[in-house]
Simulated assay, not measured.
Amino acid sequence: MAKTMNGLQTALAEASSPSWWQRGRAGRDLASFAEVPEAAEALVGLLLDTADTSVTRKTAEALARVGTVAAVRLIALAVAEADDNHADWMQTGLHDALAGPGGVPDISAICGQLAGDPEAAVRQGAVGILAWTEGCEVM
């Protein structure tokens, strides 16, 4: 447990690094902590990274690969706030996860669950993600 908490603290520190590479790695490393409030806040910030959309893409891919309701909920929150450029890169990251090796959970089913979320931004973002997954084939 201590090692896991150390990993969380390290990734949280990297999330605010000036290095795009470290922020991208933080997005990947924090994805499995999507239900932890501190990590969730950092992940939404990484999805909306203003300095480098590579961070956006890598974080979206990592969250989609984790594929929990908490992880996809964070993508939905960010989609609702995103400009078109960031939304495009989140969509690309999601497609990277769906097309990549090693199965990805059913993102469409998770978006269906999020359609009943009490937060309007999550419901709105889930609709956007659902549209992205239509016609996507998992390889």
Rank of each mutant, 00 (worst) to 15 (best):
K3I: 15
K3M: 15
M5S: 11
N6D: 15
G7R: 14
A11S: 14
L12V: 04
A13S: 14
S16Y: 06
S17P: 00
P18R: 13
P18E: 15
W20N: 03
W20L: 11
W20G: 09
W20M: 13
W21E: 14
Q22K: 15
G24M: 12
G24Y: 06
A26R: 11
G27D: 08
G27H: 05
G27R: 08
R28A: 14
D29H: 11
L30H: 03
A31F: 12
F33D: 11
F33A: 12
F33E: 13
A34S: 15
E35H: 12
V36P: 02
E38M: 11
E38F: 02
E38V: 04
E38R: 14
A39G: 08
A40D: 06
A42C: 05
A42E: 12
L43C: 13
L43D: 11
L43V: 04
V44L: 11
V44K: 07
L47G: 06
L48R: 07
L48A: 08
L48G: 04
D49I: 02
A51Y: 14
A51L: 10
D52R: 06
T53E: 07
S54W: 14
S54P: 00
S54R: 15
T56D: 01
T56L: 02
R57F: 01
K58G: 03
T59V: 09
T59W: 10
T59L: 10
A60N: 02
A60C: 06
A60S: 08
E61S: 10
A62K: 02
A62T: 00
L63E: 06
L63V: 03
A64H: 04
A64Y: 07
R65I: 04
R65D: 08
R65N: 06
G67I: 02
G67P: 02
T68N: 03
T68A: 11
V69Q: 14
V72R: 03
R73N: 07
L74K: 06
L74C: 06
A76Q: 04
A76V: 01
L77E: 15
A78W: 05
A78R: 03
V79C: 10
A80N: 08
D83F: 06
D84S: 14
D84I: 12
N85A: 13
N85W: 09
H86M: 06
H86Y: 09
D88H: 06
W89V: 00
W89G: 00
Q91K: 12
Q91D: 12
T92M: 13
T92W: 13
G93R: 10
G93D: 11
G93I: 00
L94Y: 09
D96A: 01
A97L: 08
L98P: 00
P105A: 15
P105Q: 14
D106G: 03
I110H: 01
I110M: 04
I110Y: 02
C111K: 07
Q113G: 04
L114I: 04
L114M: 06
L114S: 05
G116D: 13
G116E: 10
G116H: 10
G116L: 12
D117Q: 02
E119R: 12
A120N: 05
A121E: 14
A121P: 00
V122A: 05
Q124V: 06
G125H: 05
A126D: 09
G128H: 12
I129S: 12
I129Y: 10
L130T: 12
L130V: 01
T133G: 00
T133C: 09
E134A: 14
E134Q: 13
E134L: 13
G135Y: 09
G135N: 04
G135S: 12
E137P: 01
E137N: 08
V138A: 15
V138D: 09
V138P: 01
